[in-house]
Simulated assay, not measured.
Amino acid sequence: MRNMSDHRLLLVHAHPDDECIGTGATMARYVDEGVGVTLVTCTAGEMGEVLVPALSYLAFEDKGGLGEHRRGELEEAMKVLGVTDHRFLGGFGRFHDSGMAWHEEGHAVAAEEIPDNAFWTADLNEAADELVKVIREVRPQVLVTYDQFGGYGHPDHIQAHRVAMYAAQLAAAPSYKRELGEPHDIAKIYWTAMSESRMRASLRELRESGDTETFKGMEPDGKLPPFVTPDELISARVDGSKTVQRKMDALAKHDTQVETEGGFFSGAESGHAWWAEEFYRLVRGTAGPTDADGFEEDLFAGL
Rank of each mutant, 00 (worst) to 15 (best):
V144P: 11
D185S: 14
Q169W: 06
M194L: 15
Y146M: 10
A171K: 02
A172P: 03
Q159T: 04
I186G: 00
Y176C: 13
A168C: 09
K133N: 00
T145P: 00
G153F: 00
R139H: 07
Q169L: 08
P155K: 05
R139D: 08
H157I: 06
D147I: 04
G181Y: 03
K133F: 00
L170Q: 10
Q148K: 15
A173K: 14
H184Q: 05
T145A: 00
V132M: 09
A160Y: 01
K133A: 02
V138S: 05
Q141K: 07
F149R: 07
A168G: 09
E130P: 08
V142W: 12
P155Y: 04
A164L: 00
P174I: 14
I186N: 03
E126N: 05
R178G: 09
G181I: 04
Y176P: 13
A160S: 11
L143P: 02
E130A: 12
G151T: 04
E137H: 12
Y166H: 15
Y176L: 15
D129T: 03
V142R: 10
Q159G: 04
Q141V: 10
P174Q: 12
Y152C: 09
G153I: 02
A171Q: 03
L131M: 14
E182I: 08
W191T: 08
A173P: 12
Y176D: 14
Y176H: 14
G181E: 09
K177I: 13
A127E: 02
I135W: 07
H161L: 13
D129E: 06
Y176G: 13
R162I: 05
H157P: 06
G150C: 11
R136M: 11
L180R: 08
M199D: 05
A164D: 01
P155V: 05
Q159H: 03
P155C: 07
W191N: 12
K133C: 01
E126P: 04
E137F: 14
A173C: 14
M199V: 09
I158N: 02
A164V: 01
D129L: 01
D147L: 02
A168I: 07
A172G: 08
A187P: 04
E182Y: 08
A167Y: 02
D156Q: 03
V138C: 06
A167P: 07
H154W: 07
V144W: 04
K177W: 13
R178C: 09
F149E: 12
K177C: 14
A127T: 03
E179M: 11
Y190I: 14
T145Q: 01
P140I: 10
Q169F: 06
I158E: 02
A172T: 07
R178F: 07
Q169M: 11
A128K: 04
Y152R: 08
Q159D: 07
M165Q: 13
R162L: 09
Q159N: 08
D185F: 10
A173Y: 13
M194A: 15
Y190V: 14
T192P: 06
Y146C: 06
A167Q: 02
T192R: 05
A160E: 04
